[in-house]
Write a protein that binds this DNA or RNA. Sequence first.
DNA 1: TATGAATGAGCCTTCATTCAT
DNA 2: CATGAATGAAGGCTCATTCAT
Lengths: 213, 213, 213, 213
Amino acid sequence: MDRNSGAAAATQRTRTQDRKRELVEIAYRLIAEKGLEGFRIRQVAEAAGIDNGTLHYHFSSKEALIQSVVEHLLQDLEKNRCDRGNLKRRTAVDELRMEFEDIRLRLHASPEQFVVLNELAIRSWRDPVIAKMFRRLDDGWYAHLETLLRRGIEQGRFRKDLRIGPCARAIMVALRGIGYQSRLPRRELDALLSEILAQTEGWITSGRAPRRK
Amino acid sequence: MDRNSGAAAATQRTRTQDRKRELVEIAYRLIAEKGLEGFRIRQVAEAAGIDNGTLHYHFSSKEALIQSVVEHLLQDLEKNRCDRGNLKRRTAVDELRMEFEDIRLRLHASPEQFVVLNELAIRSWRDPVIAKMFRRLDDGWYAHLETLLRRGIEQGRFRKDLRIGPCARAIMVALRGIGYQSRLPRRELDALLSEILAQTEGWITSGRAPRRK
Amino acid sequence: MDRNSGAAAATQRTRTQDRKRELVEIAYRLIAEKGLEGFRIRQVAEAAGIDNGTLHYHFSSKEALIQSVVEHLLQDLEKNRCDRGNLKRRTAVDELRMEFEDIRLRLHASPEQFVVLNELAIRSWRDPVIAKMFRRLDDGWYAHLETLLRRGIEQGRFRKDLRIGPCARAIMVALRGIGYQSRLPRRELDALLSEILAQTEGWITSGRAPRRK
Amino acid sequence: MDRNSGAAAATQRTRTQDRKRELVEIAYRLIAEKGLEGFRIRQVAEAAGIDNGTLHYHFSSKEALIQSVVEHLLQDLEKNRCDRGNLKRRTAVDELRMEFEDIRLRLHASPEQFVVLNELAIRSWRDPVIAKMFRRLDDGWYAHLETLLRRGIEQGRFRKDLRIGPCARAIMVALRGIGYQSRLPRRELDALLSEILAQTEGWITSGRAPRRK
DNA sequence: TATGAATGAGCCTTCATTCAT
DNA sequence: CATGAATGAAGGCTCATTCAT
């Protein structure tokens, strides 16, 4: 029994983790669907087929559950950035394009991600805890873009007088603003994205032989 | 008495209108402050110094009050566009710049406007009535920008291969996305805005002697 | 209508006050019956034949309702002391006896008063608000007894070396401790009370010709 | 293995007993701190470093745990009485004084005992099981005092017309009522106790040369 | 024994809304 | 128009208890 207990405990732990993850995902879906305002933890429990009280066993409060959803979301977003970070042999221009392409794919594959992101962004205005988590996300993204832009300049591909900070922010603003448009038909969305990319790229590489077809 | 009753009725009507306007403005302020999620009609009544029940004489439901707030906001936004519309002797480039300058002034003068705008935009995702009102706003803005861009091309100031639709949308996305950043310090906000303008203008007038200082 | 509105408002106000008083009395009874631990505001509403939510219209929280009960109780207790205060022509000994007689009558007429008093006394250990209200009661009672004892000494009826403070406290402790025994049969209760009175009186008037029959 | 199993079982049993005792003591402390109303068995488990569910192996219900606490308390109280019972060579007056001195020491050493005692006394009003246990305590105390008083009379130290029953009860009431005052500063508490003792003793030995210093 | 997950009844509170006056 | 009392549905949360392992 002793030998088994270790394995059993591990299994148990895994199960609990799975359960938690499952609940977070349900919550995530529900927030996407009903919005944070219409988000009810009872519905999470119901959707998971568990009792209302059981949910409170795993997440001590509604706030805690929401924070886990945020974490879940942020991890997903940050993971992708890291994945892309590994392919650094490309030029800065390619990287920038990949940034946009990534967004495009996400918009198609899981548009609800942007919905939730917007919901939480607004909440972060008034909720210090979430604000802090979001700042982490923003700082990471900002640093990433800053590096990208700087490398582009060093590589001689981007204009030398580029104001790195504001430019990075501008890209973030534009891409984040897209969340609002996540309801647009796919075709328009693609056109919109490629337009923004073109504008950005055109500006950044201005005077550097912007190879636009 | 007959004559008076007419005047009295008129006065009454005006008073009622004033009262309604006052309530809407209080609601607007409260939404800016607490967000739609934390918005309570009781607080509106309290702030107006009237009874909770009385509020329901003016606005039959919470929804109705919110819709009035939307209307109030939209009117304000559209009025400004019309005001500017009268000065059409300028070039399209100037007009575009004014568009940005207007946003800049608003961000400084009443940042809460962007907060409320974002709150309501998100609600519009799930509230058909508000969605409709917002579509009106969007369509108006879109048409305005479209016209502006078209005129620029006709004037020979904008590049001829400009994709008017996506470009207009891109501008809207960027400017709307700024709402999220309404907390940034004024200096950064200005830098950000001028960056976006530069990018946009650079792209639009590309090959047309972009007069950037 | 104007003239009526004043009267109507007054009537309304009275009604509200009556309603509140009624609720407080129900709560009082329920606390006596189930104890503070088993006290449920839903039962108050139910007993009053009103909705659960309506109760919260009158008393914003459970705590508020309980505090009103305390106030109700304290007022009752203090009123009686004042009533007796008016008959000051008697000797201090008589007054002391009346103090005991008053307790005796209360124990018979409304033993639940002692139950509630004990419940609240214990709560006051951990609830600062109630503690404060109770301190007021205690201070009043203490001052009253102090005065009584001092007068007795001045009248030459009480021993001169009486330690007024501790003696007053001792009387309070004994009488308050009786609350625990409020379940005793009436006969034993009376015997107990008269015993305590005899002890007290004997001690206080010691060497002063204690006229015990 | 057989021999060992016996020893192991004994050890086990002792361990279990220790565990139970430990839990009871924790519960006791927690009741003193938070009151019965704020007493949560989860906190007991937490403080003991065991799981919530495990607690139910030792005590099948909250009620059972509380009863054990009562038992624990009563044993402690009764033990002390027995200890003192062994020194019967003294006079009844000395014994009475020791009764008070014992209370005084307890008040200083472990005032929480009186807090818990009061908490449980109130609960006993509605909980028949606890009521029964308390009655045992009361009866024991009462019998002890009765004996003491009777002996005093027989020894010719107490007045002959002493109403033994009510007098014993009066002593109990006063001493129990002291629990309420357990928050008083030590100095006042001592003054209070010695006052009560003086009153009691004065009355009891009245006409018997009360040797008060 | 011991654990942790699960249960479910129940509690206080909130809030938009309605109704009689 | 205005008031304030009343409504009731719903929500988040607590907690003793149970159950499978």
